[in-house]
Write a protein that binds this DNA or RNA. Structure first.
Lengths: 219, 219
DNA sequence: ATAAATTTTTAGATTAATCTAAAAATTTAT
DNA sequence: ATAAATTTTTAGATTAATCTAAAAATTTAT
């Protein structure tokens, strides 16, 4: 049986692999996991012995097929639980992460699949991140940052790039939640800020940073 | 932060305290937890140091107020999760225990309370066991074993004394689930077995052992 | 009431997960 | 291409949770 700590390492390695294709350094893992590099070296040896990852001294690690499947399942569980907490228990999108972080370690395939069905097989979580299906496949969609969205055309907010609490709480407060329709009224060359219409009435100005961290699609 | 293992010890001590009022021996705990007695002695020292229990060498342990509250909260969480799995995800009553055993360790007061509300503040779990409220209080009801229920009178099955999978599966198969109405038609002095009507049509004979492990109330 | 039986604790080890400090290997800069 | 800087690993410790075997304390039986 794999431990929760081991699972968290696999998840971290998966996350880092996405950005930096090729192998992941022990230091990068240490940074992601907030542990000492020496601890990572130890753990990485154990994970390699159990065939969850491929590891060569001084060369970093890559996930094995087995490790990759586990990481994807963890993400699937995490995001499905987030949908549950958001849709059924009415938590806000900035509250669900910490609980899902615990719930993702619950071991029961049947539970995950029933939850999936109970929630109507959602494809995206409350932050707009794709939920892997039973086989670990992620749905994709042609989303772009709001900062690149054409002026005067209605679009829908479908995701966030940044997941920090302050950012999510800021969005909530402005009503820039998932599913919200918007229209970019004006773009200020000077600082990249945007004047946007939110829903049918509200008009707000947001900074380029915010616009960059919001993913949108056409209406 | 208390570990899952520590929580499991507190739960075991709580369970044993219920039966044998007075202090609980380390051996009894070892037996309940399926660990070596020496391991229990070590753990019990740690729990005492953290004020979860009262412990004197060779004299057994009792829960402190703090430990008692944690144990009750664990039972509350366990049973609420069982209701969720049973009511919302349609698991059977013999399937829910193992998952609830994991879910009871999820740390979030808000989650438990929202779940409680979501499930409509249930007072009993799918096995008929009472669910402690926010303050740790158990509901009670004047239930008796079916073996003591008067002949010819309709009653309702509300709980089980034994929780083993084989027993629960046997009951399921006979349709002796919670909420089922029954009537004892005949009682055989010889071996204590009962002929009962289940629902409106089915008639079955059950052994004294079965009748003893079913809790019932008047219709 | 004391010896025998039983229970409980202590002593000494082990494994998972972590750390700091030092050593070794690799990468970068001149 | 070699020295300096950086990254990674090794060595040696620590804590939680577990174990077996032996010692100590308590309980039971005569």
């Amino acid at each position: 049986m794999i431990s929760q700590t081991e699972e968290n390492y696999l998840k971290a390695i998966f996350k880092l692999s996405e950005k930096t294709d090729g192998s992941v350094s022990t230091n990068a893992i240490a940074n992601e996991m907030k542990t000492a590099a020496a601890s990572v070296t130890d753990m990485v040896k154990r994970l390699a012995k159990n065939k969850f990852i491929n590891y060569q001294r001084y060369k970093g690690v890559t996930l094995s097929e087995k490790g990759d499947a586990i990481a994807r399942k963890l993400i699937r569980k995490h995001r499905l639980w987030e949908v549950f907490l958001y849709d059924k228990l009415n938590f806000t999108w900035d509250e669900v992460h910490d609980m899902a972080e615990q719930l993702e370690h619950i071991q029961s395939d049947e539970l995950v699949n029933r939850m999936d069905k109970y929630l109507n097989f959602p494809k995206f979580d409350p932050h707009g991140d794709p939920i892997p299906d039973k086989d670990g496949k992620f749905a994709s969609r042609k989303q772009i940052p709001m900062s690149e969205y054409p002026l005067g055309q209605v679009g829908i907010i479908v995701g966030v790039r940044e997941h920090s609490k302050p950012f999510l709480q800021y969005l909530e407060q402005l009503n820039l939640v998932l599913g919200t329709k918007f229209c970019v009224l004006e773009s200020f060359e000077y600082d990249g800020s945007l004047k946007i219409k939110i829903g049918n009435t509200k008009v707000e100005t947001i900074t380029q940073k915010v616009a960059n961290n919001l993913f949108v699609i056409e209406e």
